[in-house]
Nucleic acid binder design. Structure first.
Lengths: 219, 219
DNA sequence: AATCTCGGAGAACAGTTGTTAACTGCATGG
DNA sequence: CCATGCAGTTAACAACTGTTCTCCGAGATT
């Protein structure tokens, strides 16, 4: 263990603090596999983490606050990975496989994190819902920005690109949730790939359609 | 009112029972607008319904049981409406508008029910999750069956039709959830229509693609 | 008219919750 | 080297939870 980077200025004291903080996050995440955040008790978490109830307040105001921290932990590191995956693959079937594999790998590596996001995306705690929504919107913007760089995006409005990107992002969350409720990934990833293929086909022919800016309102 | 099927005896007594049962369901649904089912307390519900805590047991074993009843109340009557809407409209833009309008009307008419479904679809109570999942699968099967009757489905495998239908159903739930978090339906329904248009375009060109039963595994 | 059924009320239980206050010990900065 | 800051502990609180048992009174049954 090197002491060079964590010792000098910061303090080995904060290391211990973040250690218990992480213990609280881990304990909470484990408990959240079988319940929702809005029913997660402060004492429940501290008990599972092996610390006194009052220690909780040194790190979080309440369980909603802890939930927001969990959102960052679950989604924060995914931005670079996602964008890198999209940038590294071309269009079409190759990219579809890469995207589905990415999410399947994530769900298998961090099932509790994935479950937490899928569950609390529409959950009962407003601040957490908003935090997840903001992250997903950010994902969509990043995906749209990546799309914009590619030749296939010629003629697309910014709004339509964002609409397309949101569809991909929302589909990822749906796929993750579906993966969590099965033990055989095969059928789920297969369906996910076919659905992405369908959207990709629609994308290819999007500009074939006549102008729909002001569709017939006769009805 | 027919008395033949209700049971052994008609009874104005059972009317009062179902009245309090409905009071419990209504009270629960109201409380669930700001929390998840897994944190919904039995006493909380009875207090809001204006009955004694012990009265709860005359109707439900626990709050999870009540949740399953809410799923039926929220989704049960929607099957006929959905199928009728699909059957009454042709393909293309007309059907897209009809479908989006249907879900927007539902969300506006029964916001608490819609919120409950969106929230508990991935929520912390297994039995309720399963009940919602079963209903949505049923929806998908009904939609797929309707699709199968139409000329556009020629050449489609049963599996692909179900995949397409699931996509529509899941997209409906997503749209409902998005509508619940905004007060201006315009942008949301607009995006939803464009996304459906995209999927519809993909559907039209689905058979153009080469056989993908055994895609290249070189990777 | 007498009896039975059963939805609902009331009281009490042991256990849990979030939050406050005052405390201990140790790493840290002067 | 000592005083300060602060992560974590202990104790206590009023409030709340799900559940059981007992009882009541008004339909329903005969």
């Amino acid at each position: 263990m090197s002491h060079i980077l964590d010792g000098p200025a910061p303090g080995a004291r904060q290391a211990q603090k973040q250690k218990t903080r992480q213990a609280l996050l881990d304990a909470a995440l484990r408990l959240l596999e079988e319940q929702s955040l809005s029913s997660l008790g402060l004492r429940e978490v501290t008990r599972a983490a092996g610390v006194a109830p009052t220690a909780f307040y040194r790190h979080f105001r309440d369980t909603a606050d802890l939930g927001v921290a969990l959102v960052e932990e679950a989604l924060g590191s995914l931005h670079t990975t996602l964008v890198a995956t999209l940038a590294a693959t071309g269009d079409g079937e190759e990219r579809i496989t890469a995207a589905v594999d990415l999410i399947a790998a994530y769900v298998r590596a961090y099932p509790a994190h994935a479950r937490f996001i899928a569950r609390e995306q529409h959950g009962g705690v407003k601040r957490v819902r908003e935090a997840i929504g903001a992250q997903l919107t950010l994902f969509a913007q990043e995906v749209a920005a990546q799309f914009a760089k590619e030749p296939e995006a010629a003629g697309w409005s910014e709004d339509d690109l964002l609409m397309l990107a949101r569809m991909y992002v929302d589909h990822m969350v749906m796929t993750a949730s579906a993966l969590l409720e099965t033990d055989d990934d095969g059928p789920v990833t297969d369906t996910a790939r076919r659905q992405l293929r369908l959207v990709g086909l629609g994308r290819l022919h999007w500009l074939d359609a006549p102008a729909l800016d002001e569709p017939v309102r006769g009805n």
